[in-house]
Design a protein around this nucleic acid. Structure first.
Lengths: 193, 193
DNA sequence: GTCTATAATACGATAGAC
DNA sequence: GTCTATCGTATTATAGAC
């Protein structure tokens, strides 16, 4: 809830880490993406960090609090895009720019997490953080629909899917990671034209 | 493995049900679709059927065996489509027919389950049944790609996503269920042209 | 800030009566 | 074919020492 999103590895003078909270979030993001919400265990997060489970509870009150914290960080970036779109005239150019900005997020570390959050949609509707994510995805779907028809809404959702597809594990599509992102972006723009 | 896929409710002369195995599969399909693999519990399946957890074990050896049994039934339908495509000349007309046949599966009871199986892809790679499902989805992706490029493979995957989207919970897209299926099919055909 | 030890709960699965 | 009772193991989470 409001932490910075730049992770800098530091050590105190006695050698103890002082960035454990950020390291927990980074590792949890990996494991949520790999295993899904139910499949991800605090044991695995702790083990991968080389600490014990109780130590996690010093930094976060619950498993859900870790997810919420990760989501808060992503939400700021997505909200920026949504708010920016609100200041622009509706049109194909604005939709293309929104897709450009979203694609940039996917290329970074958010690709696997957005894939996770999207895939867990109904299973996780109960989770506060993810419910908010779904609302943001719906807002993006509305922004990306050129007109108010079922077909346009399906196409807008597919445009988002295209970006997610390139952002997540997608080696089977062939080509380089960069190539996949570029092609997905091109197709997404065609779908929202 | 090898049971019929038509569920007929019958009762023996003393009033006991004789179709519990099929009822378990139908209910499990619902709950897997709603909650995902880890989120689905045998407790909920049993409760919804009005029986106890141990009673499930009379019909299936394990939770995984239930999933495998459901998957076997779907696999026969998907394999029919894949095999039929193999006998046809490659071309836009064949791809459109494959999409028609897949869409017909989605309109039936398989839509939510295909959404489930697709979404659980990496979390469930360990599960025998789902691993086989992923292989079939990859085969369909190949069949639906007009050429051997990254862009074509992304478009083929999005065509499948469009059908899945209409088949699963998708009320937010507006329109009627029939309308959503028709529009999704049209878009899918455009993507694989 | 991290540890050991443990509580409380839920899970999948089994044994054996009926 | 379904039940009651239970086992063994995992989970999230907490208490209190250091």
């Amino acid at each position: 809830m409001g932490e910075g999103n730049i992770i800098i590895t530091t050590t105190a003078t006695d050698g103890r880490r002082t960035d454990t909270r950020d390291r927990i979030r980074a590792t949890a993001l990996e494991i949520f993406s790999e295993r899904g919400w139910e499949g991800a265990t605090l044991r695995e997060i702790a083990d991968r960090l080389g600490i014990t489970r109780p130590a996690l509870y010093y930094h976060f009150a619950s498993k859900e609090a870790i997810l919420d914290s990760i989501h808060d960080e992503l939400a700021r970036s997505v909200d920026e895009i949504i708010e920016w779109a609100g200041t622009q005239p509706t049109g194909a150019a604005t939709r293309a720019s929104v897709l450009d900005r979203l694609s940039a997020l996917m290329v970074g570390q958010w690709g696997p997490f957005m894939h996770f959050a999207q895939r867990e949609d109904d299973a996780m509707r109960a989770l506060k953080g993810t419910a908010a994510f779904i609302k943001r995805m719906n807002a993006l779907g509305d922004i990306l629909s050129p007109e108010d028809t079922v077909a346009a809404r399906i196409r807008a959702r597919l445009a988002l899917d295209a970006l997610f597809m390139a952002g997540a594990r997608s080696e089977r599509l062939g080509g380089t990671q960069t190539e996949r992102h570029e092609e997905a972006l091109t197709i997404a723009k065609q779908l929202t034209r």
